[in-house]
Design a binder for these strands. Structure first.
Lengths: 120, 120
DNA sequence: ATTACTGTATTAAATGCTTAGTACAATAAT
DNA sequence: ATTATTGTACTAAGCATTTAATACAGTAAT
């Protein structure tokens, strides 16, 4: 999955979301070592400082932790990863419903629109 | 509907989206006069310059136009408003599906999750 | 005529994001 | 021991966003 960073918001936020997705979808598993800050930065096409900021922000959620000089690792806590995935899903659905309701649709109408989209 | 501006992105972009929603949902109808830049700014709680930027950006889509000194008006073109609504709906649905697919779900699985959410 | 209101323009300052360049200390590999 | 790699820290610059404070010209209302 390419990084696909755009200018819709701060790059470092998009990076955080991207890595969260990679963890939630199992690209990175519990205990895995992440590529180095510099490698990730090169891969994403951003400045190493930007990647560093994204990673140290991610750190504060406990999802990843850094081993001072040997690298950065995904949490060993599998439940935390499971919760992350649940949370990401809920965030997406709630955001979608919130926006559609702003456009004047009821939950039932939204469901119909989604059905129509899938069968199209 | 309150403005609910947050720091997820540029304020002026959120303002544009908010006004587009107001037009799409019929709060403002074809030919309606908009409140003045200053009034809208006060209502949204932003600097008049920020509102001015949002409005002049909106102008370039043809959705609104300014009558130099008498005010700013919604387009008379009803089709343009209809197209706007369709476009906003499609954007929301496509964005939602794109994000859910990033999380590893198929269209059918997404539909099931939405159904579950509605009946909850 | 005067007053209030309209969109618009301009300049300045503060802030946050991003890039750039450099440096240091600790570990791993050789 | 030496070298490469790790996370981390720091400063500087450019840029966009936002706020602030004014100002001007045209229209509407009185």
């Amino acid at each position: 999955m390419p990084w696909n960073l755009n200018s819709d918001g701060p790059i470092f936020v998009q990076i955080i979301e991207h890595i969260q997705n990679d963890i939630a979808t199992g690209k990175y598993k519990a205990g895995d070592k992440l590529p180095s800050v510099r490698d990730l930065a090169a891969e994403a096409g951003v400045n190493p400082n930007t990647m560093q900021k994204a990673l140290s922000d991610l750190e504060q959620t406990g999802l990843v932790h850094s081993e001072r000089t040997s690298g950065r690792f995904i949490t060993e806590n599998e439940n935390m990863i499971k919760d992350l995935k649940t949370s990401l899903i809920n965030t997406q659905i709630e955001e979608f419903f919130k926006n559609m309701k702003k456009l004047g649709f009821s939950e039932e109408e939204i469901l119909q629109l989604v059905k129509k989209y899938v069968s199209k």
